[in-house]
Amino acid sequence: MLVFMQSLISGILIGGVYALIGIGLTIIFGVMRVINFAHGDILMIGMYMTYSLFTFFGIDPFVSIVITIPLMFMFGAFLQKVFINRMQGALPQNQILLTIGLGMIMSNTMMLAFTSDYKILSTDYSSSSIKLAGISISTPLAISFLITAAITAMLYWFLLKTDTGQAIRATAQDREAAQLMGINVKWMSILAFGMGSALAGTAGALISPTYYIFPQIGSTFTLKAFVITVLGGMGSIVGATIGGVIIGIAESVSAVYISSGWKDVVVFVLFLLVLLFKPAGLMGKSRM
């Protein structure tokens, strides 16, 4: 039982970060109907940003998100305004090629700048843990989960309670009707891509104390983000939140009870089962 609780809690903790990645992808898809295949690479940029701030300026990775979040937001807004915006309404395959291409540019630029060596960001608490009723919780994972929960709560508040947040949801539900209400949908798209990138970058920052950092790590997370959002229902923020936690738990529990080599198999079987019985995803039609 203790082992199960242990793996369940680890799963929830990492699932929080997955949720952040999924929410970013789903906001972008919701507002623009563009699947961002550079999502994992944007996360990778966030990791390197955190790594650089730590190595060169000695800023703690969990503190540096106050720098990473606005920078990643501006990076995403720039990508939308300069590249993605031109593809609005274009064929899906063209949009996919564009985002894949942007992702490749990002990973290769990082390779030029940092080489493809694996980097480790090691803080003095990287391998420490907290004991709680016999269950040990990794300190960096626990901190990152708390930050994730706070960011997610703020995001929900923003989307449900503010005019701009509601306008983003309105644009996602009916782009044309949003225009007819005086909403500048181009601006909403820039905002959405900025937010999506900031979320991916933050996720990258939060996992940088526990993961290896290398330029090609992006594709793993793009795939993961895709699974999470489809599982939850494309465009649904609640769905992405739940999807992220489910994937986190599935990985962690199967790593303990089967083997860590099989955890991806378990995740994809689960994914296929959900799609088999709920093709629109868990939250295919929900308010957010």
């Binding site: 509601q166 539900q173 949003a178």
Partner: peptide, 30 residues
């Protein structure tokens, strides 16, 4: 819309996953 022309489109096009009051609030977004 800001100039004072609003269209109520064919097929209503209300925001389906928003409540009545949220739809109305979107009307006063400008």
């Amino acid at each position: 819309v800001e100039m004072g022309i609003v269209q109520v489109p064919e097929g209503r096009k209300i925001f389906p996953e928003m409540t009545v009051i949220e739809n109305l609030r979107m009307g006063s977004f400008i």
